[in-house]
């Protein structure tokens, strides 16, 4: 029975299902070779490397407090930035879709700016902008807020790069919410505040969680835009990706790989989380 199923699955794989369009073998070969070399092989290397020097080395890595400090810095900053981006993203998406904003097209294009500016460039720019002598850093330090070379700086940088993810996730869903919903709610006697809270924001919750997951995953691994503003002091403002680079400079490949694996694990978990939320969302959007 099982053998029969396997045989059938193999036959399907070999023939490309029931489609008779040409090019199956060619595209399959190219895709397998390319993903095999560029994705499966590197992941294998990453997964196997820490064990290469024996099990003891792996246990050793787990005593590395600097690693955990760096992971915590990345994690907490990414969570904070993603959380702070939720109200910002909701507000901007709302204004773009429903706000009748003058210059809406322009504003819409500008939202992608953080994605368009290379990370190294945003890194040095943000560091300059928020430095004690910078345009925004100077007034902020006058009221006692130090941004550059602190965790605050990390969070601000991550908010900058994460904002487009949040807006772009919410925007299409908001756009697709039919106007009839509001009208129906109003006809049923809901007050404007109730319309916004119960009819418009409530369906956005899964979307917001998806956006949060994406912005968080991006923030957890972010490197270029953060290192210039972070100050990079071990145990204080050193992010995990930077510690990987430090370990590599010390020729500690096992140490670097251990951090990389944990980072990978965290981003997989957040991907799975986003996937689960999307599944829930699909219950809401398609009746069948």
């Amino acid at each position: 029975m099982v053998a029969g199923k396997m045989k059938k699955a193999f036959a399907l794989f070999w023939q490309g299902g029931d489609s008779t369009l040409p090019g199956y073998r060619l595209s399959l070969t190219v895709t397998l070779v390319w993903t095999g070399f560029f994705i499966i092989l590197p992941l294998f290397a990453l997964a196997l490397r820490p064990w290469q020097n024996g099990f003891g080395m792996v246990l050793n890595e787990l005593h590395d407090t600097r690693m955990f400090a760096a992971l915590w810095t990345s994690f907490s900053s990414a969570v904070a930035a993603a959380l702070l981006n939720i109200p910002l993203g909701l507000f901007l998406a709302w204004m773009l879709v429903r706000g009748h904003l003058p210059g809406r097209k322009m504003a819409d294009a500008l939202i992608d700016l953080p994605l368009a500016i290379p990370t190294a460039v945003s890194g040095i720019t943000l560091a300059t902008l928020y430095s004690p002598r910078g345009w925004l850093g100077a007034p902020l330090s006058k009221i006692g807020i130090d941004v550059a070379y602190t965790r605050t700086g990390i969070v601000l940088a991550l908010m900058f790069v994460g904002l487009p993810f949040m807006v772009r996730t919410i925007e299409p869903v908001l756009k697709n919410l039919p106007h009839e919903l509001e009208e129906a709610a109003r006809l049923l006697g809901a007050r404007p505040r109730q319309v916004i809270g119960r009819v418009l924001l409530a369906p956005l919750i899964p979307t917001v969680i998806t956006g949060f997951g994406l912005a968080f995953a991006r923030g957890m691994g972010e490197y270029g835009s953060v290192i210039f503003i972070a100050g990079n002091q071990p145990f204080k403002s050193e992010i995990a990706p930077l510690l990987i680079v430090v370990r590599l400079q010390e020729f500690d490949y096992s140490g670097a790989t251990a951090i990389a694996l944990i980072l990978l694990l965290i981003s997989f978990l957040s991907l799975i989380f986003v996937g689960a939320v999307r599944k829930k969302l699909s219950v809401w959007t398609s009746a069948s």
Partner: peptide, 17 residues
Amino acid sequence: LPLSISPVVSGLVWLLL
């Protein structure tokens, strides 16, 4: 997958190989 992998890790894997 590469979209959800830290850029630094994306470089590291090639050093491992």
